[in-house]
Amino acid sequence: MSELALRYRRKSARHEIELSAPKGGVTRLHVPDEDAKAHLVTAMLKARCEPGEELELFGEAASTLAPAGRARLRAKVGAVSPIVGLVANLNAWENIALPAAYHGRPTLEQVAELARAVLGAFGADAAAFFARLPEELGVLERKLASFVRSLVAAPQLMIFDALEDGLSRAECLHTARFEAEYRARAPQGTLVYVDTREEA
């Protein structure tokens, strides 16, 4: 049996959910409703579970971890999710660079290089993209900025939360590139798609 990057269990009055994702793989997790999705994504991002939830990340049970241990696990998780949106009064570059500038790593030059490479792969003009505020970006562009910001932290577990929500058919064709870009930069990384809908 392969090692798990994620194991999650939640018992509520309406549902009982049990999900897992193998380390290094791509997993599509389907949850019954938005509330369950928000709980799942929040638990992964916080590396903390609420009563009725059980969460294991990279083999470590979140409930038994001290704050330092949780912070260490949180650093391994990145997400493109409405829960981790962009800051409205910062332009795209400031949003992308903010965590790196705050934590002091990686350097802003490295962030700029990574951002230009990813935006280039999506066919975006980096200079024009960087200067725009979130309200001036389209839905796909906001997800792209959020994705680049997550990539900067080199997460071992990347969550794509409802990645296709709000996108046009044409834009949905680009979403496969998110996976390819993540895989190119983290060959051993785990990718988890979370959605409320069943696949057609």
Partner: peptide
């Protein structure tokens, strides 16, 4: 909330 998740 987003800032907190980014460790800020």
């Amino acid at each position: 909330r987003a800032l907190r998740y980014l460790g800020i």
